[in-house]
Design a protein around this nucleic acid. Sequence first.
DNA 1: TTGCCTATTGAAAACGATTAGAATTTGTTG
DNA 2: CAACAAATTCTAATCGTTTTCAATAGGCAA
Lengths: 331, 331
Amino acid sequence: MSITIKDVAKAANVSVATVSRVLNNKTNVSDEAVRAVNRAVEELGYSPNFLGRDLRKSETKRILAIIGTTEQSFYNDVLKGMQDAAYAEGYDILIVTTRDNADNEMRLLGMLFSRAVDGAVLLAPRLSSKTIYDLSKRYRIAICLERLDIDGVLCVTIDNERAGFDATSYLISKGRKRIGLITTRERTQSSVDRENGYRRALKTAGIPYDEKLVYYGDYDISTGTRGCEELLSLEKKPDAIFSISDTISIGAMTYAVQRGITVGKDLLFFGFDNITYSHMFTPRLSTVDQPCYLQGKTVIEKLIANMKTDTPDRSTYMLPHSLILRESTGD
Amino acid sequence: MSITIKDVAKAANVSVATVSRVLNNKTNVSDEAVRAVNRAVEELGYSPNFLGRDLRKSETKRILAIIGTTEQSFYNDVLKGMQDAAYAEGYDILIVTTRDNADNEMRLLGMLFSRAVDGAVLLAPRLSSKTIYDLSKRYRIAICLERLDIDGVLCVTIDNERAGFDATSYLISKGRKRIGLITTRERTQSSVDRENGYRRALKTAGIPYDEKLVYYGDYDISTGTRGCEELLSLEKKPDAIFSISDTISIGAMTYAVQRGITVGKDLLFFGFDNITYSHMFTPRLSTVDQPCYLQGKTVIEKLIANMKTDTPDRSTYMLPHSLILRESTGD
DNA sequence: TTGCCTATTGAAAACGATTAGAATTTGTTG
DNA sequence: CAACAAATTCTAATCGTTTTCAATAGGCAA
């Protein structure tokens, strides 16, 4: 059927072992053999079957990146960082999407169990912490952009609680007293952390927490729109709104603008993620910038290091975030 | 090291063949054997090594989707369509990104040559048509969102020439005579086709083509901004601008709005792709909608069908597009 | 020439599954 | 109960590599 190493061996008049050695440029091969094999490879258009190689070596040099959806545009930078780090070590990154479904996530992790990849990075995991923790004992797994509420799994993320605290505190420093929060019903660790940061900031400033000011929705733009509508229909309206993502914040801000509200003065907005579009909308959105590229790069470096050792690093790394101040907070 | 089918066989007190048959639910196995094997699998926490299976079957049930970058948000729907179609046939989609680099594209196609995947879909290929054509003779390859200027490779796309013609013609029907075009330096087939459609529309309407009205840039927002700036600095300014992507169009429109121009009246804008953000910006952007999900679904269905036959379908399929009319064209 | 060391080579055993074909057990019928 | 058919099971080959270990060839000293 297809051209195998045997065909090359026959054509080059050497054994398969020699062909293999040439192809993996081992030292102890004569120049003559190298030439003969290379010529045969060229002539036959041979390329090695990785299925055979991988089976023999029990290694694929591939890492799975499991994400919910490719929609969140800031994943792009994370993936770029992952790919750069992986490529530097001779690995490839395979991206698969779960559509935010835990069953799919488990199914795709099957590629890890079945040795189709050497390791996996979960971005925004939907599986329970316990499940992930258990799996991490048998397989090389890392989390990126999130942390787990259990210790013992390699995580690379930012300090979301602190970031939520910083953003909210900034709004407070602008004299705001009634700060709304738009977050997600889905309780990912990062949104819980951001919400906790929001609460701590209020508490620190002596502002009472008002559950009416918190709107729970999805990750999409329309959540922002609806959330803003809801918050603005309150008896006591908010004077600032913190959203746990730029996408949501843009939806919210768009609604406010359409209602003729002067954003940046009557109502302040703070987003999260610093996506490309966040500075394209007028007024431009203040937001929390997280080091996407660096998180991606770091998680792969750590994961590959873990693959080479029996005593894997199971720490949680929190990389620094920063506040980007723009028109939506009157800056 | 790891638990293999042999361990299961021993634990269940049957042969490896029987274990394999149970796992692949073949018919001729006794209920007793099924029970014993399942119990052993459960107890040992066994999951089959695909490296062995794939090698034996010479089939991986995986399809590679090669894209330039995950940034273009409308890829998300295409990928969704691809995944749905693939999953229905028991395949998984692996996404890899080339960063718009032909060398990377070739390197990643290595997964196809080395049998790590059964087939590949190229979205926005950077390799030459000739190269792709040659490869398509030996491997199962399809193109999506683009077509090739050579016949003989399975393509699923829209009629970009026609779409460019339609969009431009619509602007003309609005009484516009000086229509700018912002397109990409990178000569992908789709942008060439869209540009050709633009020219044909002008010609059909008896409007002379003016090369000053065409700006060449990249795929990003700032290209729109700069392109719009350039076109508006002309002696004879345009009264409408057609961009080959929404991202570019949003950049252009944002610039015009900031300059105080009344978009939808003094200057009309027409985009392409109907991305989520296109209706979030005010004024909302008129655009060409292409059936992303359907294109993804279709290309995978056709590709999988091709994998099952010796006489593959090498046609080019053009799915229908439509115009979405919004405020940026005064609708 | 003989013996020994080194540099290349090749034959064959892995890797972990699937599957053809042989062998065994079970069931059926006269 | 013998004889045959059907159902189930097992042995062993196979997929395409890599790699161990033994074998060979060549070079050099004695």
